[in-house]
Amino acid sequence: MSGIKTIALNTFRESIRGKVLYVVLVFGGILILSTYFLSPLSVGSAREKIITDVGLAFISFIGVMTVVVVGSTLVHKEIDKKAVYMVLIRPITRLEYILGKFFGIMTAVLLIALVMGVLTALSVLLGGGNISGQLVAAVYFSILEMAVMCSIVLFFSTFTTPVLTFFFAACVFAAGSLSGDLRVFAEKMGSSGGKLIMDLFYYILPNLSIFNYRHEAVHQLPVPINDLLISSVYSLVYCGALLLLAYLVFRRREFT
């Protein structure tokens, strides 16, 4: 456990000492706060809804982008520049290395999500609204989505380049966000072969739509506790499976 903690702390330090995180944070902050200034066309609850909707969309998008950019470059840089030798020559397993990287990146991303969540809440308060439980739940779901994306990025970065990792992760994110539509599309397909392929995609790709609770937060609709549990377990299982796969690939890897 101490090996995972040490690697996670180093990864977190590397993330927060890089320029990328600050650029992302400043950019995200400006975007979120701008919703307050750019929504004078609407009044009352409509204004609050716009701020909540746009703020949550930015948290999700910027959080995932950070995971993809930081995750794809950090691991590759360590392997490419041979810094990874400093870890693997010590009594640390490759699984501990992968888990350390995951928790390190997630700690940095959590920090971003929290800062942007606070900024969103601030914008809502300034717009005359209240901070609801749904808003907090929606931010929590976004963090679960970022965890799933982080495990996907780590999996790809164990065997491919940062550019390809970015590309694959972006494809998975796009397809995963439309995962529910794939099922509907499969139902409407005539051929059984096409349906099988769509079903296959549906089960392999992460269903990121289950982490989208913006609608509930905007319209103050109840979020069932079951949804919270199912999404949490889904994220945990998906991350576990992807990190295990990443480990299996990384275990076979040679450092020539």
């Binding site: 101490s2 702390l9 180093n10 590397e14 810094a83 030798y85 010590r90 640390i92």
Partner: peptide, 26 residues
């Protein structure tokens, strides 16, 4: 092990780097 050319985590100070290495060695 001391490698010929290694990238020793440039974002760390010497003390942080050595703490990192020491902790990983238990």
């Amino acid at each position: 092990y001391m490698p010929e050319k290694a990238y020793f985590y440039n974002h760390l100070s010497l003390r942080e780097f050595l703490e990192f290495c020491g902790r990983m060695s238990g």
